[in-house]
Amino acid sequence: MKPSEWEEVTSHLEKMLETLNFGSITLVVQDGRVVQIEKNEKVRLQTNKKR
Rank of each mutant, 00 (worst) to 15 (best):
K42L: 04
P3F: 00
L17K: 05
G32H: 14
S24R: 12
F22W: 15
G32F: 06
W6K: 11
K42R: 05
R44A: 14
K2P: 11
E38W: 02
E14K: 15
N21E: 03
K15W: 04
K49E: 07
L17Y: 02
Q30A: 08
T47W: 10
M16T: 03
N48C: 01
L13E: 00
G23H: 14
V35F: 04
S11Q: 15
H12S: 12
V35E: 12
V43S: 04
L17D: 00
L17C: 06
E8Y: 05
V9S: 09
D31Q: 08
I37V: 12
E8I: 02
L27S: 04
N40W: 09
E38S: 03
L45M: 02
F22A: 05
V28Y: 12
T19G: 14
M16Q: 03
Q46P: 06
D31W: 00
E14G: 15
H12K: 15
E38Y: 08
I37T: 07
L20V: 09
Q46T: 09
V29L: 12
K50L: 06
V43A: 01
G23V: 08
T10A: 12
W6M: 14
R51G: 01
V28D: 06
S24T: 09
E18C: 02
R44D: 14
T19N: 11
R51N: 01
E8L: 00
K50E: 12
T10P: 07
R33D: 10
N48K: 08
Q36E: 11
L17T: 03
S11K: 13
S4G: 00
E18A: 04
K2I: 08
K49V: 04
T19P: 05
R33N: 08
E5Y: 07
T19L: 10
V34C: 07
E8K: 04
E41K: 11
W6Y: 11
V43C: 01
N48F: 12
R33Q: 14
S4T: 07
T19H: 14
K39M: 02
R33W: 07
W6I: 05
M1C: 04
V34I: 08
L13Q: 01
Q46A: 15
M16I: 04
N40E: 12
V34Y: 03
E5L: 00
S24Y: 09
L45Y: 15
N21G: 07
L27N: 00
R44W: 13
G23P: 09
T10R: 05
V28H: 13
L27D: 01
R51K: 07
K42T: 07
S11G: 15
N48A: 05
M16C: 11
E7G: 00
